[in-house]
């Protein structure tokens, strides 16, 4: 026992008196050195491959840099070029926003409504139904089946259906026609979008205390819609916020699906997004400064929309 007591002694919290804030912090840091060591591996990697690159990208976005010569500072030149001199980029911004504004909220609401409807099923059935809705989001490249479905010749399933019922006489070249590319990509993106947010809602719904519903019924809640509004939603506010972040971030990240379906670049850049523009300049042309400006704008848009939506959502129900 005395050995144990001795070992425990140095870890006792330091009383915070007779010293400045910094002295206290330093003492606390020394006392908890083990904590820093334990989280070091994770944060070392996190800072090297996520935080650091984002910060550096912001710096590089003010420079011209081609990986061979040292970078030189050009202030806002890259941004000027992007906004005033790069029509493809403006198209990319437009498409990105359309994508995000449609898939983000739609995916969010679909996740919430579906999770809510599923919640009342018997546990075994609920598990199966959850899997059906969730599976597309975890099954990798299976969305390529949609490419087959919308194939441009008469063997594409959609074309064959349209022609069989006489709606069209000629097969439609879905992925060569700017009118169809974006809507199809959005549908496929939605198909894969019941992911983390959806599961979060399912988890949140199951955690709501059942007694509250009974209490609600006693207090005069008359139907399931009122119950949802007055009991369920306020109870799962944390999940609603988390799901929003997941849905928004996801809605900016459908570039791979677009590339797989519509090609790189898509016809007339009709589904060209900021992510594609970034891949083009960063991965293929090695204009690091310019690509960093694109990355910084994308970063700002994602963070900005997340902050905004979080602010709005956290006001709901207060």
């Amino acid at each position: 026992m005395s050995d144990n007591a001795k070992a425990a002694a140095p870890r006792k919290p330091v009383a915070r008196k007779d010293m400045t804030r910094w002295q206290w912090t330093w003492k606390e840091m020394k006392r908890n050195y083990a904590a820093y060591l334990m989280c070091a591996p994770f944060f070392l990697i996190f800072f090297t491959f996520t935080v650091g690159p984002v910060v550096l990208s912001i710096y590089y976005s003010f420079t011209v840099f081609n990986l061979i010569q040292p970078e030189h500072f050009v202030w806002l030149e890259n941004y000027m070029r992007l906004i005033f001199d790069d029509d493809t980029f403006l198209k990319a911004i437009e498409n990105t926003l359309i994508f995000a504004v449609v898939t983000g909220p739609v995916s969010y609401l679909l996740s919430l409504v579906t999770a809510w409807f599923i919640n009342e099923l018997a546990p075994k059935i609920r598990a199966v139904v959850t899997l059906i809705f969730y599976a597309p989001s975890i099954s990798g490249g299976v969305y390529l089946i949609w490419k087959v479905a919308f194939d441009g010749d008469e063997y594409g399933y959609v074309n064959s259906l349209l022609m069989r019922y006489g709606i069209e006489t000629q097969p439609i070249l879905f992925f060569q026609n700017a009118t169809y590319v974006m809507p199809i990509c959005i549908v496929v993106a939605l198909w894969t979008s019941l992911g983390v947010a959806f599961l979060s809602f399912i988890g949140g719904l199951q955690a709501v205390d059942k007694a509250q519903y009974e209490a609600g019924a006693v207090d005069g809640i008359r139907n399931r819609w009122q119950e949802f509004w007055y009991i369920t939603l306020p109870n799962m506010k944390q999940q609603l916020l988390f799901g929003a972040v997941m849905s928004i971030t996801q809605s900016f990240g459908f570039g791979d699906i677009v590339t797989a379906l519509a090609g790189f670049p898509s016809v007339n850049y009709c589904a060209w997004t900021i992510v594609h523009h970034l891949q083009d300049y960063g991965g293929q042309r090695f204009e690091v400064g310019y690509a960093s400006a694109i990355a910084t704008i994308l970063f700002a848009i994602m963070i900005g929309s997340n902050m905004l939506v979080n602010k709005i959502l956290s006001k709901v129900g207060q």
Partner: peptide, 25 residues
Amino acid sequence: FPGRTALFRLVRLSLMFHTTVASIV
């Protein structure tokens, strides 16, 4: 330990953007 909140806020912030923005660096 001092700094835990700040570190966690950074992790939370990282959920708000796609890692594509880090790809060049």
